[in-house]
Write a protein that binds this DNA or RNA. Structure first.
Lengths: 211, 211
DNA sequence: CCTACCGATCGGTAGG
DNA sequence: CCTACCGATCGGTAGG
């Protein structure tokens, strides 16, 4: 380990990214100037250009890191042993925990997804498309396996895939878009999951341990 | 009718709004200048200020009109006679049709919802909160009536409400965020609806006429 | 990592 | 509804 206390002394680049994430999430991309970021880091504006070639490069890097953090937090649950019902439930719970724990990280991705100008637009859309495609491939495989094992009824895995995508997207959106109204979502997780799984499988969840 | 051919000769104010909707949706709020809008309408920039006090006032008015158009397109289906399953299905179909027909109108609302600065922020959030609250009150009433009539099983209407909210939000989001990948959503509407309703009610839809 | 600076663009206004 | 204009701010660079 030749890193010098990464927890106590984050590098300047890391402090730069943290400041940028906070400011972009709070004020938007266009609403945040390079001068704002420099001030929060405690540098002169010109010094930022030693770390990133420009504002758009900075955003693209933040998006890449955000997607990686999302995957690291949510994917492991899917590869646990056991029935898909439990693995998907833990995955789904990990998504909500991540949204609650790092709302700014999610905000960066949403903000970048609706970016409309500059060369960063194309690059960001490549990242998001690739991420979405990987998510689909993974979900399709898990669903097909659950059908093969008899845990889910025979049928087209893509029907289930679209249903699950809609539900998961809607849930993250509901929790993001109105934190004060999202309390009902978190409080009703067991009931929500039961309805979701009943819609997906045609039967209630087999087991019912951790929520 | 003392209107002079509103279909053939839209007023200048209407052309201004149409231009603003298109530009905001295509380039974002900050990415669109008042000069851009003026150019598309065919006016000098200063002339825009005869119609709106400023750029933020313009956005707020566009949001109000967008929400009204959404309601006008999607609410009537809910007040039809017949079982909730059919009325909700037609409502849900009307939402998707509206998203497909007027994507820019939806984009305006999404864009305004993520606005972060200026006095327009507070005003827009008031509009969106009130709209969401009205939606909730209406949905809660319809669900409670369906429980009372025996169409839905006994239980807390708010469990069903949150499930439906998540599903409907997720569906609009899926169709908006990736039009090229949304084809599967529209193509699988009957299957999607069947799974949704099975999750909500615990049984398959009673009838199955129009999709 | 900083001081000093630049060209471009912005929303909005004066005055008619 | 227009011409002409303003102060402010932006991302980025020169040069060290």
């Amino acid at each position: 380990m030749n890193q010098r206390q990464p927890l106590d002394t984050p590098t300047t680049a890391e402090r730069l990214r943290q400041a940028a994430v906070e400011l972009f999430a709070e004020r938007g991309y266009d609403g945040t100037s390079m001068a704002d970021i420099a001030e929060r880091v405690g540098l002169a504006k010109a010094s930022l250009y030693n770390y990133y070639a420009g504002k758009e490069d900075l955003l693209v890097d933040l998006v890449e890191r955000s997607l990686a953090a999302w995957d690291a937090a949510t994917l492991p649950a899917l590869d646990l042993p056991g029935p898909l019902e439990r693995r998907a439930r833990l995955h789904f719970r990990a998504e909500l925990d991540f949204v609650a724990r790092e709302p700014y990280t999610i905000a960066i991705v949403n903000l970048a997804a609706s970016l409309v100008s500059g060369f960063a637009r194309a690059r960001v859309h490549e990242l998001l498309s690739a991420h979405r495609e990987a998510t689909f491939v993974r979900a399709r495989r898990h669903l097909a396996e659950a059908i093969a094992s008899g845990e889910l009824p025979p049928g087209d895995p893509d029907d289930l895939l679209v249903y699950a995508e809609v539900f998961f997207n809607g849930l993250v959106l509901s929790q993001m878009s109105s934190p004060q109204l999202a309390a009902p979502v978190v409080e009703r997780l067991p009931q929500l999951w039961q309805m979701f799984w009943r819609g997906l499988s045609g039967r209630p969840p087999r087991e019912s341990d951790d929520p």
